[in-house]
Design a protein around this nucleic acid. Sequence first.
DNA 1: CTGATTTTGTTATTCATTTCACAATAACTC
DNA 2: GAGTTATTGTGAAATGAATAACAAAATCAG
Lengths: 213, 213
Amino acid sequence: MNNKISKNSIRRLIRYRTVLQRFQNMGLGKVFSDNLAEALDIKASQVRKDFSLFNLTGNKRGGYVIGDLLEKITNIIGKNRTYNTIIIGAGNLGKALLQYTGFEKEDIKIKAAFDIDPAETHKQYSTPVLPMENLHSFIQENDIEIAILTTPALAAQRVMDLLVKANIKGVLNFAPIRLKAPKEIFINNVNLLQELENIIFFIKEKKEKIAVI
Amino acid sequence: MNNKISKNSIRRLIRYRTVLQRFQNMGLGKVFSDNLAEALDIKASQVRKDFSLFNLTGNKRGGYVIGDLLEKITNIIGKNRTYNTIIIGAGNLGKALLQYTGFEKEDIKIKAAFDIDPAETHKQYSTPVLPMENLHSFIQENDIEIAILTTPALAAQRVMDLLVKANIKGVLNFAPIRLKAPKEIFINNVNLLQELENIIFFIKEKKEKIAVI
DNA sequence: CTGATTTTGTTATTCATTTCACAATAACTC
DNA sequence: GAGTTATTGTGAAATGAATAACAAAATCAG
């Protein structure tokens, strides 16, 4: 295999899994590239191309066995073990994510949140909110690999530097700045304002009839 | 201009603006494509290409005047007027977004939130939380163009159908399903679990040395 | 068992995006 | 003000991603 794997194909892989789980829950045992393509609103050849990239094979004329696919995809994505995670910044978004139940069942364990505000650190949540001083040792002692960053933009780079020192492996960054870090640390940026502005551009464009692909 | 504008170039345009604002706040008056490229970690030629796409011009050897650029970009993105917005689903995420202050200053006005749970609709926030029954009339009467969808996946399509009927123009969807809607409604999906799984893939890959571009 | 049919897996093709390369030109130097 | 330098703007080249096309294989029908 000398093919490169793009970010997009991984995004699709994750979506295939979601759809396959739904199919499985509906009692289906097999799928065709066709079915998956329809569910994701892409072409069947794209599905097969992706599968070939990840060595996911099916049977000619018989399609793919959902159970097998799910097992292999889950393996590829890396969900056969748990990933210990922390949240940094217990503001509105941080607190919302603390209480978000969608992560747990996917073997992403949120072990703690951190905040500079001592008031936050004393409130009771089911997951502890700790003062920033404990960050480094907590990461070390609890085998934390991923940090979710929900601090204000101004604090974000400072926190990132601490995370680098503590050997974090991946960061989900909600702060609206580009974090600097060694390239072996994987950073995924989510910028909510940007997503809204994107919508604004497109609903605005419509009126003015500028070609948008 | 017979060039097509891609989603990515708009994403970058929004990022240029953020960076330019920061530069302006630092007291700078001019930039070169170089500076912007470095800030966004892309190539200078990409910056110039984008600018040419949007007819953003500078001066040879003199670079670009930040004030001018900002004005033009803001105009292109569509921020010269306010965009009325609602949040549907007053769960953790919905409530967090209700209290998020980052939108206000950007002329995105969150006019109300909606929830089926009457308990939520009686709590006091600075923005009203209303029962779902009011959705249609509220959208009509308050000139709402954008909806932020934070309901559970199961409810999301049903809500989407209501939004379509009420003539919404754009949706920011946090529910982890692919919404069906007429294509003239612009839908932007944000899937937090997927973003985390993406990180997991990449931090896992590192060990196994599979080529990733 | 033979032929028709379906569906995969992969190679070729098309389409889109990014990067390069360089002419044009504005600004600077002396 | 002549020459040098820096920087834009864009057409061409390179790279990357999506789609189409089709041979090979599995299944089905009779």
